[in-house]
Every structure is written in C-alpha cells, then in structure tokens.
Design a protein around this nucleic acid. Structure first.
Lengths: 217, 217
DNA sequence: GTCTATAACTTGATAGAC
DNA sequence: GTCTATCAAGTTATAGAC
C-alpha cells in the first residue's frame, strides 16, 4: 500500500499538469488521492510547498544523473570535449527515461514542467534554482563544442533549444491534432532523435550577419 | 477617454499574461481597470468569454495579415514557391509588429499566447480554431519549400519550430537571468533574425536514419 | 498521523435600482 | 450602460479530538 504522502504527490502531479497550479484546488487533489484535507497540510504545510515537493521528487535525481552523464561522456571523449549531439543526449536522456516510465512521472511530469516553465514566476520560485548548477556545467561543455559562437549567440541558441525541447517533451496532443492524426505518440526514442537532429542543426546554423539598420525587407 | 470595454480588455490582457488565467480573478481585473464588477459581465458575459475577446482582438487582424503576406510573397517568388526563410518571415512579421508596438499588446500579449499555448485545454477552447486555416496555407508552402521532407517529418519540425518561436517571443526574462545579464532585450528585429536562422537550419537538418531497435547509444 | 469541524476569505455570477 | 448589494459555492489553512 502506497503511503498517504506518495498518494498526495501522485494526485497533485497529475492534476497540476492537467489543469495548472492555480486551477487545481487542494480539495480536488485530496478527493482524487482519497486522503483527508488536513493530511496535505500536515505533510507539506502549504499548497505551494506541495508543488515544490512534486517537482523536486523527480527533478533532483534526474539532474544528478544529467551531471553524471556529462562527466562520463567528457571522460570518454577525445580531449575531454564531447560533440554537440553527445552533450544534448546526455542532458535529454534522463528526460527520456522519465517520459518512458510512468513510475517516474511519465509524460505527465513533463507536461507539468512545460507548464511551469511557461509561467515563469512559479518556475523561479519552485525549481529555477535547482537548474542553475546544471547550466554552468553544460554551458561550458557547449562552449567547447561550438567555439565559433560568441557567448551571447550561444545563450540565444540555448534559449531557442529549450523552447523546442519543451514543446517536444510536453506531449503530442497538439501535434496529433494539427497533423490530422498523422503524427502519433510513437517511441519516445524516435522523438528524441528527431529533436536532437533539429536542435543540433539549429545550434550549428551559420551566424547571421545582421543588417545595421534593421530588416531590409 | 478610452471606453470601459477597452479598459477591461487592456487590464485583463496584462493580468492574464502576468499571472495566468485562473490565478487572475475578475475582481483583480476590475480594480486595475477602475471599472465596476458588473461591467465585465455586461460586456463579456463570463470570464472565459473575456479571455477569448482579449485574444481575438489581436489575433484576428494578425492572422489576416499573415495570410496576405504569404499571398504577396508567393506572388513575388519564382514559380510561386518562396524559400523557407521568406515563409517564416511572412508568418513572424505580424508577431514582430505586435512585440514592437505596445498599442498592439507588445510583449505582454505574446507572453499571454505563450502561456495559453502551454495550457493546451484553454488554448483549444479559445483560439486554437482560429489558427487552423493558417496552418493549411503555410503548411503547403512549407511542403513546397522543403520537398525532401516527408509529410510526417515536416509536421514534427514545425512542432519544434513552434516551441522555439514561443520561447523567443515570450520575453527574455529567463534568458537574461541565466545568461547573467549578457543577453538583454535588444531590437526585436535582431531576435527575429536569430530565431529565423535557428529554425530554418533546424528545419533543413538532414533526415536522421533512425536505428531499428531504439537508440544504440 | 489521521480525522472532523470550522474559521476567514475569495470566487464567478446575477438581480434589480437608477 | 453603470452601479450596489448579495448569493451560493468554493478557497486555503488551522485548531483540537482521537
């Protein structure tokens, strides 16, 4: 039998992902989790801390693994400089495991992350900080893999890449809809391959020479 | 003096963008707009219809312009087949105008769009349908610009591109934060140039040969 | 650790005077 | 078209029994 605490986390994760944080009341959560209202406040003190717990349960081990995978692939690479695709794969492999395994949250968790990321404020309050150390390590690996890019240019491309990744991992309902059912949720491995193809090409794009006075048509 | 109706729309747009739809109560909106509570229900019937009105006010003219720009660039292109960058630019030019002009909603409106897009359910209920006709026209233009891609592959790449675009137009707070202030909100034209560079390279990426049994590392 | 009961407040929406 | 007054329901959170 799963503990009360876990049942609350599971229900909250699903409902925050499906309906958003503020649209999900603690009462809806407890009714789904079949627990008592006071149990939530006993275990998590407040709704906001509950959200934080929901995310950290998954994000802490995944980020730990991301660091280890980067270490491993730097150790294996010639000169300690792995290629762009390898770096992207090290970062995304834990996400892929999460998506594949419902016990790790599955797509539900990725949808929640996507949602929070779009909200900005909540993201920073809850988990933003837990991703900053990652950024350091991965940032410097990327700089060595793409030495022709200025620091600024690199940041912009990482920014775009985060957008594409979020979209890819969020789930495919929108895509299924607008592709008329042609694109269906196939093997997540395949999605990852496509994503890495897209992102690595984008990050290697020739540096644009920007017109001095703004777009000349 | 701006009409009551417009004042409500302006306040609602800003607050929905900043705090999300369900975290924004009608009462917070009326206090910002300095109007009466009943005025909202008089003009818009319900909170949900208010959201719809907020979006359609901007989206209808912008989408109209997107169609006209595509017509124009197809008429000008040799064989009626404009290149990838031209198509992307036609689609994004109206977004750029919105971002540049606070009177058209500015970044605020784009932030709202990004948020709704991440929410999925609300998106489809409110505006999803208004983008479908666009998809048809732009989809076929893209197919002609990238004939080497299968229909399915193309849809996936459009999906990723939407993610990158959403991220780019949402505003640069996150980017500023994690770049340590190096990337600041410069000329939106420049952002657009970078985005188009990234996305067009991603869409032209070589088609990956996927391993038959899943990732072989 | 789990429960009931309840406090204290906010929510979207409407009726009806002007 | 604009207002006040009010409804019925739902909100987070806590006190205190077991």
């Amino acid at each position: 039998m799963i503990s009360t605490r876990e049942r609350i986390l599971d229900a909250a994760e699903k409902m925050f992902a499906d309906q958003g944080y503020s649209a999900t009341s603690v009462r809806k959560i407890i009714s789904k989790a079949r627990v008592n209202l006071a149990a939530v406040h006993y275990h998590f003190h407040s709704k906001e801390e509950l959200l934080e717990a929901v995310i950290l349960r998954r994000a802490i081990p995944a980020n730990q693994e991301r660091l280890e995978l980067l270490d491993a692939c730097e150790a294996a690479a010639p000169g300690g400089n792995p290629g762009l695709e390898e770096i992207l794969r090290a970062f995304l492999a834990p996400s892929l495991r999460v998506v594949r395994d419902p016990a790790l949250g599955g797509v539900v968790f990725m949808r929640l992350i996507a949602r929070l990321q779009a909200e900005g404020d909540l993201w920073q309050k809850t988990v933003g900080g837990h991703f900053l150390p990652l950024l350091d390590r991965y940032g410097s690996a990327l700089r060595r893999a793409l030495p022709e890019l200025s620091q600024e240019e690199l940041f912009w491309r990482v920014h775009f890449a985060i957008g594409a990744t979020t979209q890819a991992l969020r789930g495919t309902e929108t895509l299924e809809l607008f592709s008329g059912g042609l694109c269906r949720p196939t093997d997540p491995n395949l999605i990852l391959d496509r994503l890495i193809g897209f992102v690595s090409a984008g990050m290697r794009a020739p540096v644009a020479v920007h017109s001095l006075s703004g777009g000349t048509k």
